[in-house]
Design a protein around this nucleic acid. Structure first.
Lengths: 200, 200
DNA sequence: CAAACTAGTTTCGAAACAAAATTATCTGCA
DNA sequence: TGCAGATAATTTTGTTTCGAAACTAGTTTG
C-alpha cells in the first residue's frame, strides 16, 4: 500500500522535473546529456556511455550530442587508442550553461531536507536503483569508491611512484584524484549477490 | 554535495521507469493517464485535471485520453452539472491492463525496502514535491486526509445523517468513504506556510 | 586477410509535445 | 434578458524526440 504511494511520488518528481526542463535554452534530453558529460570520467565521456546512462538508444543519444555540439556546449576529441571512439567535453559555454540547469530547483529542494532525511533518501534510492537495474537490462553507473574494480594503492613507499595513487583494476590504468568521484561505465557495485548467471 | 547526488538519483529513477514504459501495449504518457484515472476522485477525473497532474498542456492530455478511449481502456461520461466537463472512467479492460503496468517493477523495488526506509523516503519525497510545487507553478495533488478542505463530520448524532460522513468544505459536498484516499485537483496541503502572496 | 564485432552516425516513421486557434458552455454584470 | 469574458475540451499545426534499422568505419579474432 505504502509502496505504491511512494513509487507514485517518485514518478511525480521525475515528471515534474522533466517538465521544468522545457523552459530555457535546451531540451530535457540535452540537459541530461550536458549533465552526464560534466559528471562522467574520461573512460565514459562517449555517446555509447551516455546512451546507456540515459536508458535510450545510441541513435537518439547521437542526436542530443549533435545539437549540443552545434550549439557550442560540447566539443569532440577522437580517442588516440581507438579510432572509432570519440570523447565529449564541455566547453566553457557548456559549463556556464550548467549553472542555469532547471534541474537545480530539484537540487535545492533536496537540499532543504535535513541531513538525516537526505541520507536516508539517498540510501533508499540507491537500493531501488539496484533492484531496478537487476530486474531490467540496464547498467548502473557509479563512482570509484563504490566499485569492485577500484584499487587504492597505499601511499607509495617507493619514491618513484606518486603518493597514494588510485587505479582501476579492470583497465589497469591509474586514476586521477579528480576523477574518482566521477561516473564510470565500467562501474561494478561492491557487495552485491548476482542471482543471475551474468559474467561481467 | 550530497544533495546533488541524491537529486541525480531521483532523476535516474524517473528516466529508468519511463524507459520501461515503452515496452508493452501503451506509451508512457498513456500509462500515466491510466494510472491517474484509476487513482483520481470523481471531481478530478477530467482531462484538465490530468493535464495539471502530468504537468503538460490540455491538448496533449486530450490526445493520450483519446488513444486510451479508442483502445477501450477508458469511457467518457458527461457531467450533469456542467455540460463542458467530461468524466473519464476505467473500463474493466483498463483495470485489467493496470495489472500489467510496467510501473509495477518500481512498486516492487520500493516494496523491497524495509519499512522505516520506505516511510523515510515517502516523507522526504512529500517535502521535495511541496518545495517543487511552490517554486514552480505546479499544483500538487493529494488526498483528503492531508487537505485543508477536508471536513470530518463526527459520527452524526442526528439519525437522519449517516454515521460519520466526510465532506469537502471547499465544494460543500459529501465525500464517499471510498473516495477519501483518491487524488483530488482541489487539494490544499495543511500546515504549510505560503511565503508568496498567492490566494488559493 | 576475411569474418565478426564494436563505436558512432544517418535515416525514417511514429509518437509526443507545446502553442495557438476553435467550439461549446458557463458565469457575471449591466 | 443579453452580452462580454472565462472555462473545458478539442482540433490543428509544426517541432522535437524517440526507437528501429540500415549504414560507415575502425578493431579484433581466427
Amino acid at each position: 500500500m505504502s509502496a505504491r504511494e511512494t513509487a507514485e511520488l517518485l514518478l511525480q518528481v521525475g515528471r515534474l522535473v522533466q517538465a521544468e526542463g522545457y523552459d530555457g535554452e535546451l531540451s530535457p534530453a540535452q540537459w541530461m546529456a550536458l549533465r552526464f558529460f560534466a559528471r562522467a570520467n574520461p573512460f565514459s565521456r562517449t555517446p555509447s556511455a551516455f546512451a546507456e546512462f540515459q536508458a535510450t538508444t545510441r541513435g537518439t543519444a547521437t542526436q542530443a550530442i549533435k545539437a549540443l555540439e552545434a550549439g557550442g556546449y560540447l566539443v569532440r576529441q577522437p580517442f588516440k587508442t581507438d579510432g572509432r571512439s570519440v570523447s565529449l567535453r564541455l566547453t566553457s559555454k557548456g559549463k556556464k550553461a550548467l549553472a542555469r540547469d532547471p534541474f537545480e530547483v530539484l537540487v535545492r529542494a533536496v537540499d532543504s531536507l535535513d541531513a538525516t532525511e537526505r541520507t536516508a533518501m539517498r540510501r533508499a534510492l540507491h537500493q531501488v536503483l539496484s533492484t531496478l537495474a537487476t530486474s531490467g537490462a540496464h547498467r548502473r553507473f557509479g563512482v570509484c569508491p563504490d566499485c569492485t574494480h577500484f584499487g587504492r594503492e597505499m601511499c607509495g613507499n617507493l619514491p618513484s611512484t606518486g603518493p597514494s595513487a588510485a587505479e582501476c583494476l579492470l583497465l589497469g590504468v591509474p586514476i586521477q584524484p579528480a576523477d574518482v568521484g566521477l561516473l564510470c561505465v565500467h562501474f561494478q557495485p561492491m557487495n552485491e549477490h548476482r542471482e543471475d548467471g551474468r559474467t561481467p
